[in-house]
Structure formats: C-alpha cells, structure tokens
Amino acid sequence: MRQLLTEIRIAGFGGQGVILAAAVIGKAAALFEGGYATMTQSFGPEARGGSSSAQVILSSEPILYPYVAHPDVLVVMSQEAATRFAPELKPGGILITERELVRVDNYPPGVRVYGVPATRLAEELGRKVVLNIVMTGFFGAITGLLEAESLRRAVADSVPPAMQKLNLQAFEKGYEYGSNLMLQMGANGNGNGDPVLALESA
C-alpha cells in the first residue's frame, strides 16, 4: 500500500520558537485530523541560542522511522539554518523562508521557494516573538497539508490562555500572506492558485 507520508523540517535560531511551530503542526495532524505525527528535535548545547531544528513527520499510517534526512518541506528562519539544510531538501520539495532574514541559492532541482516577512508581520502585532506562529500560518497556506482550522486549534492548544489571542492573530497574518501569495502566483501563471499539493513519497 502506498502511504501518504510528509517529512518536514523547521529550523532557525534557538529562541525563535522552532520547536513550538513543529509541535503545532504535529498536533494539528495527530490530534485534530486523526492522522499520525512524530516530532523529533535536536537537543544539546547547540540548541541554546545557536541553531535549533525540529522535524515532524505526518502520515496516514503509523510512523516507524522517526528521523528526517531529506525533508519534503523545509521551513527556515535563519540564514545559518538555510545554508545548512536547504541542500538536503528532497528534489521538488518546498522551501519556506523568513524572507528578510534568509537568502537561499543552493537547493536541489525542482524546489519551490516561498518567502514571508514573518518578523515584520509579527512586529506589526507588537510582539516579535510570535514570528514562529506567523511562519506556521504561512506554512499552512502554502502547503495545504492540513486544514487551517486544525492548525488554529493546535495553536490555541499550545500556548498559555493569555497568549492565545495574539498567537491566533499571528497565525492569521501568516496564513493570509500565504493565501495571497498563492493567488498572486496563480495570476502570474506560476501555478493554478491552488495550494501546493500534499506530497507523496514511499
């Protein structure tokens, strides 16, 4: 049987909320869409202030091997993460960047790149810390892997009650930016305006 399996890596600086973004995606799939999700993360001294990376595997089947070598989707929030991980993307995969922090030129053939000024959008909400949730919203709109509603529930479920409103606003900012970008690209003839299809691999 052919199983639907998507491997995602999210990477950035420690403190940018990389792990939380990955947890939101995993939760949305495993808790709110009845699928399977396995999240792993890089720990250790290098995860404090330096680089931080988390991997999520989404699948319609139980997940066996928990690690990600060549992700279908890579979300990067720092130049260092982009430089390190972009070459490992699966050919034809999706690269999502914090547009104003990251410049990428080295990635496998067929990779589609989408950028969002997440830090600036977060700052518009008055709190730069929610950049990770802006990125998560953007990820949702671009990949179309998960229902927006599942992601919203996962966001609400993952932050303290006092922070829910802000984080949901951040999510909408990113999601809206992504949706508009997809429409725009469709209008420019770079696509049909639909979200990028869920990726399938063995």
């Binding site: 947890a23 995993g26 495993a30 399977y36 999700a37 396995t38 999240m39 792993t40 720990f43 928990p66």
Partner: peptide, 9 residues
C-alpha cells in the same frame, strides 16, 4: 533518548 524526546499522540 530517541523515544524520550520523540513527540507523538
């Protein structure tokens, strides 16, 4: 470590 730090449902 892998099972300890792996997040799932």
């Amino acid at each position: 470590e892998c099972v300890g730090h792996m997040t799932e449902k």
